[in-house]
Nucleic acid binder design. Structure first.
Lengths: 226, 226
DNA sequence: GTGATTGGTTGATATGGGTCAAGGCGCTGC
DNA sequence: GCAGCGCCTTGACCCATATCAACCAATCAC
């Protein structure tokens, strides 16, 4: 017995699979298995070989690079609905990052074989995989732009802008995880992250309360200079 | 009359196309056109819409991001045989970078329509496109690692290591373009680039003569600390 | 040949963000 | 209730790399 939700039902709601016939989906499901991970658990290590890709059904996962003296650099924070590890499936290379659960999470792992098989049968699926990889690539170019061309304050503002649930004039962002992890994602130390929030607050541009950030004037913040 | 080489012949030697039948190739060729560009010429601007991808037949192209006060950040330097612009073809987004010829170059432009068409017919082709995108993605992750986790000296050494034509103990790298462009690629100012080369030289680890860098001891350089 | 332009080097100085250290606040466990 | 631990903040200081400025060498225009 298990609390297993219906894998096929889950997949059928995801963009990557939602145009598949039941028969196609069934083939995928046959090569999919669930993986329940606890907060802090490592999903795969850097340099592990890849034989499929993962989907976050619920929970939260980070991709990160090990850095000096046990520290890390967070590359991506992934919430429910996102997939990861596709790219390594198509190459003969091991994972260049490791994956760790930020909270208790339910993942699906889809075997490379099923994906390769389906690519051969379904050009639409192939195009979706291409689109997915293209999105990731685009995101990484944005990241490179941010890391190399923008100041720490600009990176933080950019992050808020992406995650904000735009209301009218005032907007709110709920940070999806700890400030330390987000700081790392933005290539900042927690200290600097804290100071920037503090600085923007004292200028009246934002208000911070725990993980909730209120943006007084979106346009003003977007145009912030230094 | 033209000095036009045979497009089909060129394509047939590239990994992406070399398993195609003549018929398949002919379809691609029908949607391919040459583009001769002079040194310094812009191939496309950031935010231009994409309707295909490019191949460098000969010459050299850089992808770059505009930065403050007319400067730029070089994202990638591409030599003959490389392709670029694939990812944007699969999304509804404009180019996130601009492309400029670093030397007089001959490019091929392959229309998105031909690619999409061929993806529908040839799963092998699709897999190769996926592999190509995956390689780019992997490269960008490496870049992110370099920018965020490594010192300027380590980035420069890493660059030399990738480009070296490994001999026995001693190795040689011929910088593929000006030091200024490579510096930008590594997210360094020309001044810092120059100083690092100088510094490594004075430690006897490398010898620099114009664009030729000789590495005395590859293992020693690879293990260099700061 | 001469001036102008491009690419590279060198030195002096500035600074953004990191590092180190200490302390606070709010959990969770018992 | 309080010990202990994560997470966050604050302050003092430091350092890697950028910036600014001057200059040199090679190449190019004509």
């Amino acid at each position: 017995m298990s609390t297993t939700p219906n894998i096929q039902a889950i997949l059928s709601h995801l963009p990557l699979f939602n145009t598949m016939t039941n028969e196609e989906l069934a083939r995928i499901v046959r090569h999919t298995h669930e993986r329940q991970v606890n907060k802090g658990e490592i999903i795969f290590q850097k340099d592990d070989p890849s034989n499929g890709f993962y989907l976050v059904v619920h929970g939260q996962v980070k991709l990160a690079l090990p850095a000096a003296n046990g520290t890390e650099k967070v590359v991506e924070i992934m919430n429910a609905g996102r997939s990861f590890g596709e790219a390594m499936m198509f190459m003969e290379k091991p994972y260049p990052v490791y994956a760790q659960a930020l909270s208790d999470s339910l993942l699906l792992h889809i075997d490379r074989a099923a994906v390769f098989d389906e690519i051969g049968r379904d050009a639409g699926f192939c195009r979706k995989m291409l689109a997915g990889l293209s999105m990731r690539l685009h995101g990484l170019v944005q990241d490179v732009e941010a890391y190399t061309l923008r100041s720490s304050t600009q990176r933080l503002i950019g992050y808020l802008m992406n995650d904000l649930h735009e209301k009218n004039g005032t907007a709110t962002v709920s940070l999806p995880t700890s400030k330390t992890v987000i700081a790392s994602r933005l290539n900042l130390t927690p200290e600097t992250f804290s100071r920037i929030l503090n600085n923007l607050s004292s200028q009246g541009l934002i208000a911070v309360e725990g993980r909730d950030v209120t943006i007084r004037d979106v346009a003003l913040l977007r145009g912030y200079d230094p």
